[in-house]
């Protein structure tokens, strides 16, 4: 039900930040995020950052998926 895209924080302006997704910058509200910093990866839904994305898990999204997925095998 809920459309959200990953983005990287570029600059912060009080309760807002400019964030970048695939070469597109948009201004989003960051009040729901704990101590946001430029460079942080976040998930954006309807103009708000709704959660930080673990940079360890970010990379190319699939890498983590494959690792976790393979971790479920033979359990």
């Amino acid at each position: 039900m809920c459309l959200a895209v990953p983005a990287r924080i570029v600059t912060i302006d009080e309760i807002h930040a400019w964030v970048e997704t695939m070469g597109v910058r948009q201004r989003v509200n960051i009040q729901l995020i704990d101590s946001p910093k430029p460079g942080d990866y976040i998930l954006v839904h309807a103009g708000f950052a709704i959660e930080k994305i673990d940079p360890e898990h970010f990379r190319f999204l699939n890498d983590t998926l494959y690792e976790m997925f393979e971790g479920t095998e033979n359990e």
Binding site: A4, P6, Q31, L32, I33, D34, L43, I50, E51, I53, D54, H57, F58, L61, T64, L65, M68, F69, T72, E75
Partner: peptide, 21 residues
């Protein structure tokens, strides 16, 4: 495999979620 709960979306979903939200 045995029946269990799995989180395959760890990149955006933590155990306890976004507490501020």
């Amino acid at each position: 495999g045995h029946i269990e709960f799995v989180n395959l979306y760890k990149r955006c979903v933590s155990f306890s979620g976004n507490t501020i939200a």
